[in-house]
């Protein structure tokens, strides 16, 4: 049974505050009489006792999937569809409900199984991410996973680590520039334009490249 949009949003909020941020359980207050709450109770997603809402096992699993779809949607909007940055959250909220089973995996694969949303929050991994560790079919992948002689265009930079971001930007490794890999060991050596740079593994994890097909 597919949940209503409103129910999905409630699960999302609950998951972020109790599972991700490990805050105290939420109080329902006025929302208690809402239709969506009834739906979630009936589907055994949540428990309500003395006005306190708790996620049940099923609710945790579903909540994680919803958060994953939301953050994937944001990545898609920012990196591929180039949506105005102020609008991503808003559109992402609507978009997430469309990425149901199957579609989210396609989007995830297209984006190279990203680990962070554009706001720097982690994207919970899906089945496809685990599979990708074995099969290497990615359109966008971190520089770390490129092979020597691979070419591509920088797609985006991970923004969760500001210090690293500044260093990457100082080298001029910015989205849109063409990049080619020279060597992976003992350090990652790559070329942008006519300049070559060497970086370590941690820095190489912060640059995502859209690969060119041979």
């Amino acid at each position: 049974m597919k949940l209503s949009e409103r129910s999905e949003e409630i699960l999302e909020t609950l998951w972020i505050s109790t599972v991700e941020e490990k805050k105290e359980p939420l109080f329902l207050g006025l929302a208690e009489r809402e239709e969506a709450i009834a739906e979630l109770l009936k589907g055994e997603y949540i428990d309500v006792s003395a006005g306190e809402v708790r996620l049940r096992e099923r609710g945790k699993e579903e909540g994680e999937r919803i958060v994953r779809r939301h953050r994937l949607a944001e990545r898609l909007l920012v990196d591929v569809l180039d949506v105005k940055r102020g609008l991503t959250h808003e559109i992402g909220c609507k978009f997430e409900h469309l990425l149901h089973e199957g579609i989210d995996e396609n989007v995830c694969t297209l984006l190279g199984h990203p680990k962070m949303c554009p706001h720097g929050k982690p994207i919970p991994p899906g089945r496809c991410c685990e599979k990708s560790a074995r099969e290497v079919v990615q359109v966008v992948r971190p520089l770390k996973d490129m092979e020597a002689m691979d070419r591509g265009t920088i797609a985006y930079l991970a923004t969760n680590d500001q210090g690293r971001l500044h260093k990457v930007m100082a080298m001029g490794a910015l989205p849109g520039l063409r990049i080619s890999m020279i060597q992976k060991f003992p350090s990652y050596v790559f070329q942008i334009g006519q300049s070559q740079f060497a970086i370590d593994k941690e820095m190489a994890e912060g640059i995502y490249v859209r690969l060119e097909k041979d």
């Binding site: 350090s187 300049s195 070559q196 740079f197 060497a198 970086i199 820095m203």
Partner: peptide
């Protein structure tokens, strides 16, 4: 913190 390495060649 662990230091990071980057350098223009």
């Amino acid at each position: 913190e662990k230091p990071s390495f980057y350098m223009e060649i």
